[in-house]
Amino acid sequence: MSTQATSPLFKALNDIASGFRLHKIWTMLGWQDVKQRYRRSVIGPWWLTISTAVMVAGMGPLYGRLFGQPTAGYVSFVAASLITWQLISSIITDSCQVFIAAEGHIKQTRLPLSIYVYRVIWRNLIIFGHNLTIMIPVFILTPSAIDISMLLALAGLLLLLVNSVWMGLMFGILCARFRDIPQIITSFLQIAFFLTPVFWKPEMLGKHQWVAQINPLFHLVEIIRNPLLGKSAPLLSWTVVIGITAVGSIVSLRLFSRYRPRVAYWL
């Protein structure tokens, strides 16, 4: 255990790898977060599922009519969209707090910083798992949607998780140092919910579809939502997301290897 001449990059990679191996700790912390939020509540995390379901039941028929879409198809579209969006947006919001919220642990222990990122991802996966049950009645109502291409949703999810790691490290560092950034990201995501094709479709834009296509969040939603509905996502979306993954990982890794030792001082 020495802080001798190993390169910062090696230490950063080591942090990310050894943190992952401590899965006992981050799965426990992630579960603990969910349990803590819902202790003494009878149905616990299902409350989130219920509120999402209510939103689907409310928004589905209404916006389906507004946009002139067939109700059954549109409701299942909104259901898949909303649970995907909630996963993505809450991972981003929570990324801002990964290190700030773990201040006590970070200052007193030598645990790798990456475990707090994995913890946040795990917590959101648990909630996503609950939300996913909303799709069950959707499948029952529209059985034709079930298809082998749904397995691609797993690939999309996996890709999102890889992105979550770099986002958690990057936003975690930036937000620990500059405390205004969490507010900026939160309000940005509120607007992004309307600007990203979550409850509307890019086709509705007619010849202005590029507005949706230049939005990276759209592609991130697309690679999970479409397979969930038994459709394949466009190749463009996969390409864009893979590109984001590569660029994001490199930038984030550089940031992390440079500032990893400083995080404790900023808290």
Binding site: M1, S2, T3, I106, K107, Q108, T109, R110, Y265
Partner: peptide
């Protein structure tokens, strides 16, 4: 305890 990494200097613990 490993919470803070020193700004400079070396620490060798076993």
């Amino acid at each position: 305890a490993g919470g803070y990494e020193p700004v400079s200097g070396t620490l060798d613990m076993e």
